[in-house]
């Protein structure tokens, strides 16, 4: 097996081991914990008073942040390989990345000026 596949294998083994440990602890908990069902225990807890109104209506104000995040997160995928190879790319790489970052920053400035970053 090559080193490349061993990396994947190590990650897979760790995931399985973690799942196993979580399962073991939950199983242990199932053996130990008491079960005394009472109707009131299954009401959603809202600081002591009975819940009022309906659940599920919330104004997700910062979905625009999520859109911005996608832009910058994809940028990170481009920047990491560039960062590793900057030594060999030299001035050419620096100028290219400066242009790239400036364009991205323009996007952020645009969002800023549009008032997207303000809690309206």
């Amino acid at each position: 097996m090559t080193e490349f596949y061993r990396s994947y294998l190590a990650v897979a083994v760790l995931i399985l081991a973690a799942i196993g440990m979580v399962g073991f602890m939950l199983g242990l908990g199932r053996l130990i914990r008491p079960v005394r069902a009472q109707e009131q225990k299954y009401i959603p807890y809202e600081a002591g008073s009975d819940p009022t109104g309906t659940f599920g209506q919330s104004n997700v104000r910062y979905y625009v942040f999520a859109l911005l995040f996608v832009i910058f997160d994809v940028e990170a995928v481009f920047i990491f390989p560039w960062a590793v190879n900057l030594e060999s790319l030299g001035w050419f790489g620096l100028v290219e990345m400066t242009i790239f970052v400036v364009v991205l920053t323009l996007g952020l400035v645009y969002a800023w000026r549009k008032g997207v970053l303000r809690w309206a």
């Binding site: 959603p44 807890y45 809202e46 600081a47 109104g53 659940f55 919330s58 910062y62 942040f65 999520a66």
Partner: peptide, 19 residues
């Protein structure tokens, strides 16, 4: 969780963690 506070907390956490 079917709980208003939990939903608010989860959304706040999502907004915060991605930011």
């Amino acid at each position: 969780s079917a709980n208003k506070y939990a939903l608010l907390g989860g959304l706040r956490a999502a907004g915060q963690l991605i930011a």
